[in-house]
Every structure is written in C-alpha cells, then in structure tokens.
Write a protein that binds this DNA or RNA. Sequence first.
DNA 1: ACCCTCACCTGCACGC
DNA 2: TGCGTGCAGGTGAGGG
Length: 276
Amino acid sequence: MPELPEVEHVVRALRGAVSGRRILAAELNLPRLLAAPSPASFKRKLCGALITGVSRRGKYILIALDHDQVLVVHLRMTGKFISVGLDDPLPAYPHVIFHLDNDRRLVFSDMRQFGRMRLLSLKALKELAQINALAPEPLLDEFTQEYLFATLKKSRRSLKQLLLDQTKILGLGNIYASEALFLARISPFKSADTLLQKRGVLLYEAIRKVLHEAIEAGSTLKIDLNEQNGSYFGSDERFWRVYERAGEPCVNCGTKLRRAVQGGRSTYYCPKCQRR
DNA sequence: ACCCTCACCTGCACGC
DNA sequence: TGCGTGCAGGTGAGGG
C-alpha cells in the first residue's frame, strides 16, 4: 500500500517503538514471505538480537540489529507493523511475530501476502541487487534536476510509467505519480524523452512537493503502530488532488477529471490542465 | 538495455 | 443470496 511518505512514517514509528529493544523470539507463520535465510536460521539469528536503529532506502525498511545484521522489509501493498501487548488480541494475518523485551509483540501483518522480508549481514546488504538498483533518494541532495532530466531523456515510456519505475525515479507509487504530474501540469501520456527542460524543472519540484507534503500531512496525525499504520489519511480525508477523483471537477479549472489505464494501472488527470 | 506482461494474494464493491 | 468481474497504494521473473 504505501509509497515513500507512508514508509517514512512507518520507519519513524518503528524507531520510536522498537529502537533499543531486544528480540526475545521470532515466530514465522508464513514462511513464504521470507526471501532469506531459511526459517530456522531466521529464528535462530533473531533470538536475542538487539534492534539498534531503523531507516529506509526508497520503500524498503531497514531494521538494523547488533552483530552487523539487518532485517530488510518491503510492505508492498498491504504489509503493516502493529505493536500489541501480551494480553492484546493479535491483528489479522499475523505472519511474523517478534516478541520484545518490554512485554510487547511487534507483529508483521499482511492481508495480501505480498510483503517480503529478509535477514542478512551488512556486507550482504551492500550487495543486495534490489537495493543497489534504486534511483537516488528523492528528498536528498543526490536527487538533482540534472539527474531527473538526464533520466527522462533516456526513456521513451510514458511519464506516468517512468515515474513508477523505482530504478529511475524513487519513492512515487500510483497515487503520487498522478499527483506529481497534475501539480506540474504535465500529461501522464507524454513520452519522457520529449519533455522540455523547463517543464522537467516543474516536474522535479512537483515530485519533491508531493512527497514532502504527504510526509508533513501525516506528521500532524498520530504516529504509532496501531492498525492505521502505513495507511493513508483515513477514509474521510480526501487528501489528494486527482487520485480517485474521476468525474469530479479539477481544483484549477473545474474540468471533469478523468481516469485512464496505463500499464494496467489507473492514472488520474485533468484533460485540460495536463494537455502537454 | 529497455520495456512489456503476468504472477503473486485477499477482500471488497458492483451488476446481474 | 450468490456468483462473476474488476479493482486495489508494489515489485520481480521471464521474455521479446
């Protein structure tokens, strides 16, 4: 479910809730979600491990442990971390349960079972292909206008599809890709290599803005590890400008917003504001 | 090298 | 009510 801003919130919540805690034992109820190592090795290595910090790279959550071990977690569509007390009921789909040294259990829950977890050494993390292939962090200085423009120039895919490619532009998902293009007033169907530099700058600024804005918006909400974690902003709050708003009027011009399908996924846009 | 399609899962809203 | 269809915020393997 989550895109970069939501993962950032999960990371912050985890940092507050589990940094400095020791894992007493790990239960694995859905071995398939473990990319590596074997279930037996996973449980053995986690037993007694100290959680030293929590960070992320793109949408991958990195839980650092002592003895140079790292737990790499991707939430994919519906993965969640939920913290429960010893007497509290478990959430649905409790695929992994970490028993902590403060009488709490950190549960990894995932309805669709797409989430993935792997435990590896720091050295192996440095060689992990999926992480190494990721584009620069969009909110750090390493993501420059020059990088974005050079990347756009190299691709003939539609902008919407390119924005979803984490090896090219990192952090956006299906919601924020539509939102960024709307903010920049650029057509999602336009071939990436045809975007003029001047409009590339607008796209650069829009990408950063939607990500910052979503992190800020989430920061005003309660950050914890309850059922809501990793989700968007509640069913009543209509936070975004075009996503899931087909048929509603554009906030800029009043034109009816549209939904289209690109690469099998929904794109939302304003046919008037985003003509080019 | 690039890009496309499909596969991985469950749940929910919808129309007949 | 029940059943079929399409859709859901993400990768990643395999193939052209």
